[in-house]
Write a protein that binds this DNA or RNA. Structure first.
Lengths: 154, 154
DNA sequence: TTTACTGCAAACGATTTGCAGTCCC
DNA sequence: GGGACTGCAAATCGTTTGCAGTAAA
């Protein structure tokens, strides 16, 4: 088992534990969603999660996917990345605020290395505005290497 | 004329110029929207802009408000702040990326002082991901001073 | 057995769109 | 006069909800 799949396995167990601890029931649909979230380092949409659940539980409905995603989001086990006019993407592997890099052309989302300066910024903002800062989002928008290459040789 | 209203006046003229330069027509509805955007340092929703246009041009439709906001956004004369489940807010006074502080309780949006470190972050991310960075958004979420006070003495 | 969870389909709500009429330029 | 802009209402689309049936505990 390599480092990546170990991390995925940990995430899966953590999510299961967290749900159980909150008295939530474990259904096969939920377990499948949890596994898919823990397995994929991409940032899936609800529809994409739905598509991946289908082969295993074809009767699963989209509403259930949303239920589970909302549940996990509210427990802090999944990060919701709002793409505005293009719905939301979900990150179950790194369920804490971290910067994303989003391609304006193909909409791919990549994780950026965590920038320690952000914490300083938060306390700076807290001081200057009087807000009690709880959370943040930092997203960079641009063109991914693949789309850049595609532009240069169409 | 104080500094604030001077800045507002400049923003209004700039937006008018920009639209004209792009061959856009100036209608009373549009001018009203431009003025409202240039006047208000709050971060209005489309519906709020609509409400403020009503007294002057009661026949104006919401679709026209959206038209104008989208036009300005695409020209880079207005910043769109995506609130996810709560629609969008628009900032016509500071039409460049800058950090916002958003209250999770009353949804008020405040501008945070610009953080120069952000530019360093952008080039850092550009280097490590290969993305060509064009834009960014940095939003802090928390509780505003008013809501904090309200919690302590209900 | 209990009641939380599920599937289905209808509802929702912010935004967009189609179209006929209007009015800037 | 011509074509961009407007108002209206209907359409869109991701997400939520109501409800009756199902199954986890």
């Amino acid at each position: 088992m390599d480092i990546t799949s170990a991390a995925q396995s940990v995430r899966f167990s953590t999510m299961v534990q967290k749900l159980k601890a909150c008295g939530q029931r474990m259904t096969p649909q939920r377990l499948t969603v949890l596994r898919i979230l823990a397995e994929s380092s991409e940032h899936l949409s609800a529809e994409q999660v739905y598509a991946r659940v289908q082969p295993e539980y074809p009767m699963t409905s989209l509403a259930t996917i949303y239920n589970t995603l909302t549940l996990l989001r509210d427990m802090g086990e999944v990060i919701e990345i709002d793409m505005g006019h293009d719905g939301c993407r979900y990150d179950g592997l790194h369920p804490f605020p971290h910067p994303h890099v989003i391609c304006l052309q193909c909409n791919i989302i990549t994780d950026a290395a965590n920038l320690p300066a952000l914490d300083d910024m938060a306390s700076q903002v807290q001081q200057s505005t009087g807000f009690q800062i709880i959370n943040h989002r930092l997203d960079f928008f641009g063109i991914c290497p693949e789309c850049q290459a595609r532009q240069n040789q169409p």
